[in-house]
């Protein structure tokens, strides 16, 4: 296909919130969260909106790539927790970078970073003049969490991740599956104050059916990874790392077990940041890249799943 990743960046707010801190707010405890979700701590924004975190991650990715903002031909961004519906997150980040180029959002919840890569691949194919595209996932999940619901508020965190893509041949393959429906995961908007509208709406927080989400996620990861390997005539030994959406450590562990893949093949940092939705894959990718554990030429798989329901995976040569 049509690009290679030449730089990654992330940003998380400085406020660290531990499981013990959350146990002061809701009826929970560190042992349960650590064992059952895999999260030890997360970052929660005190004064930064999602666009401001996204801008910092974007600047870090551009710096990592050695690319100036004005060299970017398009910015694609994703969020479920942005401070505005309009301007789009991509436009807010573009404004922060002080550049003028194509900019738009793609909505696919926790899978969105994979959809951003797919969109970028399509745009590289469509616009032969495009040389570089910036992709950003950024979330202030704390703004859409119900801090009275212990089953969800302990899982998520705030942060942003970004990547700079350059026209190339390292995006080798992808699988995308979407099955529309709002019964498993949904984040409703408020109803507004129209005097004419009388329908009830759920509260504007994340609503998630835990068991169904778990089952869907494990099945999605297993199927997507199997499909990518089979289609490309690869075995798991050909893959250096799998970078999954950091939703819940148990989802990753059980998917690994079903696939017969050692857990260590999956790069995980959920213990530090929780589930940061669209930012989780680029944050993990940046940490992996900066750790020195990833070498040029390595084949890696990124995979994600979430509201939509939408899941995706891609095969990349680093």
């Amino acid at each position: 296909m049509s690009f290679r990743i030449i730089g990654t960046g992330m940003y998380v707010p400085s406020k660290v919130v531990t499981n013990d801190d959350l146990a002061q707010i809701v009826d929970t405890n560190d042992e349960w969260i650590s064992k059952r979700v895999g999260v030890k701590e997360r970052r929660f924004s005190e004064n930064e909106f999602a666009s401001e975190m996204g801008l910092k991650a974007a600047q870090n990715a551009l710096s990592d790539a050695g690319v100036k903002p004005e060299e970017i031909d398009a910015i694609f961004a994703a969020t479920v927790s942005g401070e505005t519906s309009s301007p789009s997150m991509a436009c807010m980040i573009q404004n922060g970078l002080g550049v003028s180029c194509m900019a738009m959002d793609v909505s696919a919840a926790c899978s969105a970073f994979l959809f951003l890569l797919e969109t970028a691949a399509a745009f590289f194919a469509l616009h032969k003049e495009f040389k570089k595209i910036l992709v950003v996932g950024t979330e202030r999940m704390s703004g859409i969490l119900d801090f009275a619901d212990r089953s969800t508020c302990v899982i998520f965190g705030d942060g942003a991740g970004a990547a700079v893509l350059e026209r190339g041949e390292n995006y080798l393959d992808s699988v995308i599956t979407v099955k529309g429906g709002d019964t498993v995961i949904k984040i409703p908007h408020g109803n507004g104050n129209s005097p004419y509208f009388s329908r009830e709406q759920d509260t504007p927080y994340i609503h998630m059916q835990g068991q169904e989400t778990f089952k869907y996620a494990v099945t999605a990861i297993s199927q997507d990874i199997s499909d990518l390997l089979e289609r490309n005539h690869l075995t798991i030994d050909d893959i250096a790392w799998i970078v999954p959406h950091q939703a819940n450590k148990r989802i990753i562990d059980f998917a690994a077990k079903r696939l017969g893949i050692e857990k260590e093949k999956f790069f995980c940092n959920i213990e530090k940041y929780g589930n940061t939705s669209s930012a989780s894959v680029p944050i993990a990718l940046d940490e992996l890249a900066k750790s020195g554990k990833l070498k040029r030429g390595d084949k890696i798989i990124l995979c994600a799943f979430g509201g939509g329901l939408a899941n995706a995976a891609c095969l990349i040569e680093w």
Binding site: R36, G210, Q211, F214, K215, V218, T219, R250, F254, R258
Partner: peptide
């Protein structure tokens, strides 16, 4: 065991 353990077993 909790609900996710049961889901794992069911799968």
């Amino acid at each position: 065991i909790d609900s996710l353990d049961l889901t794992e077993m069911a799968m």
